[in-house]
Amino acid sequence: MKKKIDFVLNGEKISMEIDPLKRLLDVLREDCSLTSVKEGCGEGECGACSVLLDGEIVNSCLIPVGTVEGAAVETVEGIRESENGKRIIDAFAEEGAVQCGFCTPGMMVGAEWILRKYENPTSDEIRTALSGNLCRCTGYDMIISAVEAAAKGGRK
């Protein structure tokens, strides 16, 4: 059963005829070709599918697309060209925060959320904010440093 859904995706209004129960994750990946959004678990445990929904960080694997009617959805594709986005990418590369990279776009969405919320986030605040984003490669420390560095606008 398809339904018409309108929402704002990375700043652009879009409208689609779609099964409202389809996971936002699948809509983004399959219907919008936004493959920065990854599926790590499909059950809200890993954060690889993180996106911003009206500015809040959510797991897109848990969200039926029908519920985003009228909302603003942001993915890495919409963040990477912005000032913040560039700073985050730069800091991640500089601080060694990236290994296999599979968790990284989700981490980047988390970092963007942190940068918008805190002017000067402490490492505890960063750890708490990213506690829903799992990484099996890094042990997290370099990711935390990268977000701190991005918030400070350069290498710490």
């Binding site: 990946r29 493959t35 920065s36 959004v37 990854k38 599926e39 993915t75 890495v76 594709e77 990477r80 986005g85 985050i88 990418i89 991640f92 590369a93 500089e94 060694g96 925060a97 990236v98 296999c100 990279g101 599979f102 990284t104 776009p105 980047m108």
Partner: peptide, 22 residues
């Protein structure tokens, strides 16, 4: 002396295509 990993930017910015992304 550390260099920037050659794959870091592409991965962070979501350009890297893993098998399920292709």
């Amino acid at each position: 002396t550390p260099v920037r990993r050659l794959d870091a930017v592409e991965k962070t910015a979501g350009y890297t295509k893993y098998i399920a992304d292709r």
